[in-house]
Every structure is written in C-alpha cells, then in structure tokens.
Design a protein around this nucleic acid. Structure first.
Lengths: 223, 223
DNA sequence: TACCACTATATTGTCGACACATTATTTACA
DNA sequence: TGTAAATAATGTGTCGACAATATAGTGGTA
C-alpha cells in the first residue's frame, strides 16, 4: 500500500493518534454516525485531550468527521447520496489528474506503471480478491502522483481516498468488475504513454463513472 | 460578499482568530512565506497558544499555511507554478460544479442567477472595478452552491477560493478582461438554464482556462 | 397531560505550565 | 583557523485544571 502523503511517518503523538483513529473509523471499528467524546477517547487511547482534539481536527480535514462548535464531533454518515457525490468529485479530479499525468509523468514512471499493470494482470488471472483491490488502489495513486499537482495530490490522497476506502469496507465492495476495470486501467495507461491528454482524461472519467454506476446497482440490489 | 461555508458565523475564539489570521494572510498583512510563531501570535492576538494552534491547523486545511512537526508553520509561498496548479484544480472542480448545477439548480435559483448577471452588467458598463471583482466572486459561488455537492462546496469555498483571493490581492489582479469574462459568465448561465450539463461544464472549464492564460500573460509581462 | 422554566450534569473551549525537540551559540580540539 | 562536539536558547508538543456552553433531568403550572 502506498503511504499517505501528509503524514508519511507519524512523528508526534497527535500524528499516531490521528492515524489510529482514522483507520478505526475507516474499518468501522468506530461506527459511522457515532459521537466522538474527547474525554472518552483520551482515556481509551491513553493520551491527553489536547492530542485527541488535534487528531479530531485532522479527521475533520479529511471529511471523516464533522465538528460543531460547543457540541462535538460525529463520524460522518454513509449514504448512497454521499457515495454518488464522492464519485462525482473523483471523476472531476482524477480525470484532471490523468490529463496532467499524460503531460508530466516521466518515461520511467510510465514504464513502471505498465509493469504494475502487468503484475496486476497475473493476480487478476489467479483471482485473488485482496490483491486486486490493492492493485486498483496503487494504480489510482500513481496517476495522481504523476499529475505533479500538489493540490490534486493532497485533496485526493490525504482526503477523499480515505472516504472511498471507508465506503468500500463498510458497504462490502470487493465485487466483480475486476477484469473490466483492468481493461479500463490498461487503456488509460495507453493514452498516458501516448501523451494523449484529452483521451487520458476522458478514459479515466469513464472508468470512474462506470465504477459509480456499478456500485449504485449493487446498492439498489441490497435495498 | 457571500459568507464562507464552514464558519458561517464565528462562535469560539478559535473561530474568530482563524478568520482574522486568514484574512491577514490573504491580504498580505502577514507576508507569504513568513514563519508563524505560536508564542508571538498569542501575544499579538491576545489569546492562548491553544487557540492559535487550532487556528493554524485550520489554516493548514485551507492550504494557506504548511506545518512541519516540531518546527512550525509557514505561510504558503506564492509562485507562478502554484497559480497554474491552482487553476488546473479549479478547472476540474468548477467544471463539474457547472455540470451539476445544470442538473440540480432550481428554476428560482437560476432566475436569481440571471438577475445577478444583469446587475453585474450595469456595473460593468459603469466601470467600477471593485464591484466587478465582487460580481465575479458571487457568480462562481452560486454555481458551486448550485451543484448541491457537499464535497465540491467545501473544497472550493472553504479551501481553494481563499488561495485564489490571495493570489488576486498579492499579485494585483483587477485586470481588464472584465467584459469578456462577463460574456463567458452569460454563456454558462445560458447553458445551465437550458439544462445542458455537457455544455455548462465545457464553457465553465474554458472560462477558467482563459482566466489562467490571461493571468500567466500578465505575470510574464511583470517579470 | 402537555409545556415551560429551572437546576444539575456532562462535555467542549480555553488557559498556563512543563517536557521535549530543534536550532543557534559557544567551546574544545586537531 | 576550521571543524565538530557540547551547551544554551527558542519554540513546539503535551498535559491537567478551570471556565463556558449545551444537554438531560426535575419540578411546577396551565
């Protein structure tokens, strides 16, 4: 798994507590919609309230919790509507990321990306779900990093991707569509390798759009 | 001026200090690139360090300052490169916002937007620079709000727009291009009124792209 | 019984002090 | 005299206590 950007390696206690809380929220150990009591968490995680407060503030930055003045923080609620909105933003941002990646990625980065896709292909054949998921994550990470745009990188990697993971985990999406998604990835890389910015953006947007409709279908089936 | 979203009305001291610091940074009263000393600011603004720390954390959320563990926070540096990257993200996000606005804005909101444009037109004729700028800001705000997408709204209004303003103020951009920009605004609204999502997005993207190249030209002239 | 005012409790906001890390300065040695 | 280790000074990280605010519970009245 590629490292997150903002906190490469946790240094302070607030860093560590932030990462721990974040993972617990994403994994659903701290249930979505639940209230985060500062005093409670400070005893639970064995740190002072100040540290918890700072961690919670950073969670708010990733849109994983919402704070209200003089009231407290709640873990964000998951909904079909929220998922749709999340994917709309992903479509816009990752589309642009693909466009910029086609412009700015070095030849070495591109061939490395191709290699990643090849290894991904082997796991697709052998049908290991876990690594398929990891492969997908890695693919999107690399494109975003390849954009060389600091805003894109921080908004997506430090922010939205954690929410995406949270939806994946808690709505239980390992899903099929792996082989189709793999083909889409291949086409995106092809466009990037050809330095075709326009096509790279369009293909990435479609790829995310298809994921969205696919997820929506699964959700409706569950309801 | 439309109110910012996250802190509609400042409640706590941290809120007020955040807003004050933010404005001072945007206006250049606190120079870009300078170091923010917590102890210094706490005496200057007459609040405890804890309040300053929280304010600085929120500034980091808006990408107005950058923090390093055990070192401190610096006001973000402005550069031509940074401006380009900022406008790339704007293009992606506001393009999507226009698309969604075409889908989700109510008829009332649309006619209100038209009215805004008409009043804007009068000030364009009378040639008042200040209100032209305000009109532009209002226009973009409304589109973003019209998207009804919480992520778009928070990333743009709570985050990037402050940086945009900072560049405008400190690079001194009141500029011409007002009448041309006004025409572009008109066309976007036209597309939204026709519920043409595709066109709305494309026109908004072009509008921002033109602004970018225009600003780049001015910058190169200055250097 | 329903509704409002008041009280009591719990939680967040703020503060000042201390612990620790980083940086600048001084001192010792080759 | 130049470099490096040791030390001092500054600033951030963390803590526990107090103040201010919101919430829950109680009692009273129409």
């Amino acid at each position: 798994m590629a490292a997150s950007f903002g906190v490469e390696t946790p240094i302070t206690n607030a860093d560590k507590t932030f990462v721990q809380l974040r993972d617990d929220i994403v994994e659903g150990i701290i249930p979505s919609g639940s209230k985060l009591s500062e005093t409670e968490l400070s005893t639970k995680y064995q740190v002072s309230r100040a540290v918890i407060r700072e961690a919670i503030n950073r969670l708010a930055t990733c849109h994983l919790v919402e704070r209200k003045a003089n009231v407290g923080a709640r873990v964000v609620g998951l909904s079909a509507e929220g998922l749709v909105q999340l994917y709309q933003v992903r479509e816009a941002l990752e589309g642009m990321a693909a466009r910029l990646a086609a412009k700015h990625m070095s030849d070495e980065e591109i061939s490395s990306l191709k290699a990643l896709l090849d290894s991904h292909f082997d796991t697709v054949k052998s049908g290991e779900n876990y690594y398929q998921e990891a492969g997908d994550v890695d693919f999107h990470y690399r494109i975003v990093q390849g954009s060389k745009n600091a805003h894109l990188i921080s908004v997506l990697i430090d922010g939205l991707y954690h929410l995406v993971r949270m939806y994946r985990v808690q709505f239980g999406m390992a899903g099929p569509r792996v082989s189709t998604a793999f083909d889409e990835h291949k086409h995106v890389v092809y466009a990037i390798a050809n330095r075709d910015e326009e096509l790279a953006e369009m293909l990435m947007r479609r790829h995310i759009l298809y994921s969205k409709t696919n997820i929506e279908k699964k959700l409706n089936k569950d309801l």
